[in-house]
Amino acid sequence: MSEPVHTFTAEPLQWSPYLTPVRLDEATPEQLDAMKVTPSNKKVSDYVLTLAHDPESLAVRSPLFNAIMYGRDGLSRAERELGAVGASIVNRCVYCASVHAAQFNRLTERTDVIARIFADGPAAELEEHQQAIFDFAVKLSETPPAVTHKDAVALRDTGLSALEMADLVLSAAIFGWANRLMHTLGEPRRPSA
């Protein structure tokens, strides 16, 4: 297998678990239901098969994640991805960062923002609007969370509505969850040629 990847990239990566994933042909009905396996959908990633060891959590976390990242109205898709990237940078989750950086690049049709974030990390200097969003996500991701009144004022002053600000909190916070699974239960590798 290829070597683990420890530096940030927007290239596609594979995720390799430290644990033995559940075997699809040995999964219980509860596990199959949590993984959303149906006769017409039998493709399941190693990540989901690993999390299927705890089907009660997986069954609620997947719809929660999707509602936060893809729900209607509020913060734009790209800006939710920027929140996800901010958290993933702080937590050094190289896999999550690659997936959501690529989404951000696709949605905004530019690569310079992510390039700067990958080069300079949490201290990256961005355009004012993106800076307010990125900084808030970064500070919320520290332990303990370090967001202050000033950070919230910056969000408001850059024109975010109440719903958009709430969506940013949620999209950064759900990566406080996702990063703590992806980065601690396995590691990213370059796809084999």
């Binding site: 644990l19 690993t50 202050t148 109440a162 940013l168 406080g176 703590r180 699974l181 239960l185």
Partner: peptide, 23 residues
């Protein structure tokens, strides 16, 4: 996996609370 989900969830929940308080 159960332990990891517990830890990851509490980290999510605490950040939603901290963020909402700030907003």
């Amino acid at each position: 996996v159960r332990l990891s989900e517990l830890a990851a969830f509490v980290n999510y929940q605490a950040r939603v609370i901290a963020g909402f308080r700030c907003l």
